[in-house]
Design a protein around this nucleic acid. Structure first.
Length: 392
DNA sequence: GCGCACCCTACTCCCACACATACCT
DNA sequence: TAAGGTATGTGTGGGAGTAGGGTGC
């Protein structure tokens, strides 16, 4: 899977489009994703050169290969002196120059670049993690991701993050095996057998299981944030019924039947990646792991596109990943502020929904109403969205 | 501990009408 | 088979109503 282009069926696939769940060569990628504005928003990333099935997340400069997380770990066995370059998602129709700007190694093999894609100049959009879900109205913005997600933007040191992440995984595991693991133990466990042992089938990913997954209390903001993080990871259970979460459900009928690694469920790969990538072994020397692709209508409802939590993307101070001693490290004032921000954000997300027909929305937006109900044209109304006046 | 009132949050329903889709000629 | 006409269903937003949980007495 994923070796030949799903579109032309001839050329070797170079990129993976999560939205289309398709592996494409660069040429077809340009063709397919220049069809319309919506397709331009699809986020794509390179395909792992080893397994040819998983989206690549890093580039090994020495080996000159793009690797998914799993293959990266298998190849480098957790400790390598190779230089690792993080691969970003992109959207739009990037030109060769633009691709080179984000994937410098592209210049090493210019043949893979379709030089005819110049018409896409300026249309590429690469998410900036540090700014969170940004909306690019017309695909004209070029935003190159330079920020770090797990390691870079956080105030938490790399080692601490590793350990914290390890603790999360440990808690995750403990929720299934009822065996507690320390972060170090998780790191040790994270060898080749890690993925084999880590079977998501055993984990009930129902939203009700945040507590078990993250092992946090019920009433404190940490719990709330943890829940919010999962919510966002899953694209938002309430507001977002599309994307990874929905796809995961629809494909299996159950939300807990997902294989984390090397599954062909690439549509859910980012989801799984986000839940599984915070493993301590992966955090070793990669300077950053990029969850980008928040382009176009990158509202909260589209986090599923890259699978990253909005919280993480926005670089907010997620106490839930700062370890268990946050009470002593987080000022009470900022804590309450953060709780406030979280609630506002949750409120915003709660009422968000995806508009399928913009034209209908446009008409509804200007339609006159009586007590919120549409009225016939010409009838008396008490609310006019355009003028906000009353006819009587 | 139980029942009640109150508050808050989340959800559903309603409306008109343009548009999408299915069906028929 | 393609094109045109008709019928039916869908989706859109703001406000009202309702259900349910939490809290205090």
């Amino acid at each position: 899977m994923g070796y030949q282009c799903d579109h032309c069926g001839e050329a070797r696939s170079m990129v993976y489009c999560r939205s289309d769940a398709a592996y494409l060569c660069l040429s077809c990628d340009r063709v397919v994703h220049s069809a319309n504005a919506l397709s331009k928003r699809h986020s794509r990333t390179l395909v792992c050169d080893k397994c040819n099935s998983q989206p690549a997340v890093v580039r090994c400069v020495e080996e000159k290969v793009s690797l998914c997380q799993n293959c990266d770990w298998v190849s480098h066995n957790g400790s390598t002196t190779h230089s690792i370059q993080t691969l970003n998602c992109y959207s739009g129709c990037p030109s060769a120059v633009e691709l080179s700007s984000i994937w410098s190694f592209m210049t090493e093999s210019p043949s893979v670049i379709d030089s005819t894609c110049e018409q896409g100049m300026g249309s590429m959009s690469i998410a900036d993690n540090s700014q969170g879900p940004s909306r690019s109205n017309d695909d004209k913005n070029l935003v190159v991701n330079e920020s770090n997600l797990w390691m870079g933007s956080s105030s938490v040191g790399g080692d601490d993050r590793q350990q914290n992440v390890g603790q999360q995984i440990g808690q995750l595991n403990s929720s299934t095996s009822k065996t507690s693991h320390s972060g170090k133990k998780d790191a040790e466990a994270c060898d080749d057998g890690f993925y084999a042992d880590f079977n998501m089938d055993e984990v009930d990913l129902g939203i009700e299981n945040y507590e078990e997954l993250f092992g946090v209390g019920h009433n404190d903001p940490e719990h709330l944030f943890a829940k919010d993080g999962i919510d966002s990871l899953f694209g938002g259970a309430e507001s977002n019924r599309h994307g990874a979460y929905a796809a995961k459900e629809s494909s299996t009928g159950h939300a807990n039947q997902v294989q984390p690694a090397c599954s062909n469920a690439a549509s859910a790969d980012s989801l799984i990646s986000c839940k599984t990538e915070p493993n301590p072994c992966y955090a070793r020397q990669h300077s950053n792991i990029s969850f980008s692709s928040l382009t176009g209508e990158s509202s909260a409802g589209e986090y599923q596109d890259c699978g990253a939590s909005s919280m993480l993307l926005m670089g907010e101070p997620p106490w839930c990943i700062q370890g268990g001693s946050d009470q002593t490290t987080t000022p009470i004032g900022s804590r309450s502020d953060a709780v406030l921000r979280y609630r506002e954000k949750k409120k915003m997300r709660k009422f968000e929904k995806r508009v399928r027909y913009a034209t209908r929305k446009a008409r509804a937006d200007v339609r006159k109403r009586v007590k919120g109900r549409f009225v016939k044209a010409g009838d008396a109304y008490d609310y006019d969205p355009m003028s906000q006046t009353r006819s009587y």
